Deep mutational scan, measured.
Amino acid sequence: TTVHIGNVTYHFDNPEEAVKWAKEMAEKLGLRIEIHGDTIRVE
């Protein structure tokens, strides 16, 4: 599972961890997340 924040990509072996981490980052940055299969974007 990959999480994209701007130009930076993070890789997670556990999809649930990826979603949890992306949600925390989105809250901190005042952004929202979009999930497309195994790709998560924070925008």
Rank of each mutant, 00 (worst) to 15 (best):
F12T: 00
F12Y: 03
D38F: 03
M25H: 03
T9I: 15
R41S: 08
I33A: 05
E16Q: 11
E34D: 11
A18S: 01
H36F: 13
T39I: 14
A26K: 03
V8P: 01
G30R: 05
H4P: 01
G37V: 04
L29M: 10
K28Q: 11
N14K: 07
D13M: 09
E17P: 03
H36G: 04
R41M: 12
K20S: 08
V8K: 15
W21L: 02
K20A: 12
E27T: 05
A26R: 02
W21S: 01
H11D: 04
V8I: 13
A26G: 05
N7E: 10
Y10Q: 04
V3I: 05
V42K: 01
K23T: 14
K28F: 10
V42Y: 02
D38S: 13
N14I: 08
E27Y: 06
D13Q: 10
G37Y: 05
T9E: 14
T39S: 11
I40W: 00
Y10I: 14
G37T: 04
L31T: 12
K20M: 10
E16D: 12
T1L: 08
I40T: 02
E24L: 11
I5G: 01
F12D: 00
W21M: 03
K28E: 09
V42L: 15
K23D: 04
F12S: 00
H4N: 06
I35Y: 09
D13F: 07
R32C: 12
R32K: 15
I33P: 02
K23C: 13
A22M: 03
T2E: 06
A22D: 00
A26Y: 03
K23H: 09
L29V: 04
E27P: 03
K23S: 10
H11Y: 15
T1S: 08
E17W: 09
N7R: 11
W21I: 02
L29H: 15
G6Q: 06
F12I: 02
G30Y: 03
I33G: 02
A18E: 00
R41H: 14
R41E: 06
M25A: 05
T2H: 12
L31R: 06
A22I: 04
G30C: 09
K28R: 12
A18I: 02
M25Y: 08
V3M: 01
A26I: 03
V3G: 01
E34P: 01
E16C: 08
D13P: 10
H4Y: 13
D13W: 08
M25E: 04
I5F: 09
V42W: 02
R32W: 09
E43M: 15
W21E: 00
E16T: 10
F12N: 00
Y10R: 13
T2V: 12
D13A: 11
Y10T: 04
E24G: 07
G6I: 05
G6K: 06
G37L: 05
I5P: 00
I40Q: 01
T1P: 05
N7G: 13
V19N: 05
L29I: 06
G6Y: 08
T9M: 12
K20C: 10
E43P: 05
E16W: 10
N7C: 15
K28A: 11
M25P: 00
G37M: 05
T1V: 14
E43C: 09
E34H: 15
V19W: 14
A22V: 04
G6M: 09
T1M: 15
R41D: 04
A18G: 06
G30S: 03
V3P: 00
E24M: 14
V3T: 01
L31S: 13
E43V: 15
R32M: 15
L31N: 04
E24Q: 12
T39R: 07
D13V: 09
